[in-house]
């Protein structure tokens, strides 16, 4: 009798142990799969990532049936991103991505991926990915507005607002250019400390530039300059635009002098330093020296990252 009991206990223990081991293996396997999928996504291997996220999602759904678990949500989000970014794209891929993003965006799921999924739905609407894929600016704008409405205090709200402005500016109609600039400025006024404000000012400056409203354009760019350029190192061409606007269109000598000087001092690699020196001379202002390619030099130059001229690459 005792032997029989021992046998039963042994069997139960073995089954329990096996079940634990299998569970641990399965858990590790989902994590591993997810990790591999993430690695592939980070390397733009969309098809591999799509396959691995698909496997992960299936495994996660099997592991925890019912509403999507945290891991299933990650896998679904990764799968949707991978399939929507793969090239060549197709209507089926976009439909699948849309379906996955929609499910993640569902308020009931309370997914941390909801906001980004909604943004991505907007992006899908704004892009044309295959033959006959119509750009739907109105839908895109609506999606971005939903993000701002549902997640007003999340950092993604600034990005959504920026994208809303973009949906207007890209039409290049005067009223839309104005609207785009106003959206940016309204955001900045309501969120004076937002990290995206410099980019918003710069975009407003672009919109006013296209409208040939040079004073407003220059003022907006100057706000960007004050906050620090988002695309630090590539502001050389913008400085040139600012200097020329001030010099040629607005006859604002002080502003022209300021930005010609900045070209020489801050972005000498832009190629416009010498012409800025000539302009400063013409304006009767102090002319700084160009401090690059000095041989030998005692001090390191600052190293702005600017697009290198094609002529410089062999």
């Amino acid at each position: 009798m005792a032997r029989e009991r021992l046998r039963i206990v042994t069997i139960v223990c073995t089954l329990w142990g096996s079940s634990l081991a299998t569970g641990a293996w399965a858990k590790e396997s989902v994590d591993d799969l997810l990790n591999h999928a993430n690695d592939q996504l980070a390397m733009f291997n969309w098809d591999n990532a799509y396959r691995l996220y698909g496997d992960t999602l299936a495994a996660a759904e099997k592991e925890s049936p019912g509403p999507w678990s945290a891991k299933a949500q990650q896998a679904a989000f990764g799968k949707a991103v991978a399939t929507s970014q793969a090239s060549p794209c197709s209507a089926e891929r976009i439909d699948e991505a849309t379906s996955l993003f929609n499910r993640l965006a569902d308020a009931q799921l309370k997914s941390p991926f909801a906001a980004r999924s909604m943004m991505n739905l907007g992006r899908l609407a704004e892009l044309s990915d295959f033959m006959d894929d119509r750009v739907d600016i109105e839908s895109a704008r609506k999606r971005y507005a939903e993000v701002v409405e549902r997640f007003p205090s999340e950092p993604i709200a600034a990005e959504a607002t920026y994208r809303i402005a973009g949906t207007y500016v890209q039409s290049f109609k005067p009223e839309d250019l104005n609207r785009g600039a106003e959206i940016c400025q309204a955001w900045i006024t309501a969120h004076p400390k937002d990290p995206l404000n410099s980019a918003m000012w710069q975009y407003a400056g672009d919109a006013y530039f296209f409208l040939k409203e040079y004073r407003r354009s220059l003022d907006a760019y100057m706000e960007s300059d004050k906050l620090g350029w988002t695309d630090e190192g590539n502001q050389g061409p913008i400085y040139w635009r600012m200097a020329v606007i001030a010099d040629r269109e607005l006859k604002d000598t002080a502003a022209a002098g300021k930005f010609y000087t900045k070209i020489i001092v801050e972005t000498p690699y832009s190629g416009k330093a010498y012409e800025s020196q000539l302009a400063l001379k013409r304006l009767g202002m102090p002319v700084p020296e160009i401090q690059i390619f000095k041989v030998p030099t005692a001090q390191p130059t600052t190293a702005p990252v600017a697009a290198v001229s094609a002529e410089g690459v062999r």
Binding site: L41, A42, G78, Q85, P195
Partner: peptide, 26 residues
């Protein structure tokens, strides 16, 4: 798409430098 996805899928690896890069690319 990749940058915004990785920021969510690997939030522990999303540094201030990455966020700056994202704003720049955006």
């Amino acid at each position: 798409g990749m940058m915004s996805a990785m920021a969510m899928l690997r939030p522990q690896a999303d540094t201030a430098e990455d966020q700056l890069k994202y704003r720049k690319a955006l």
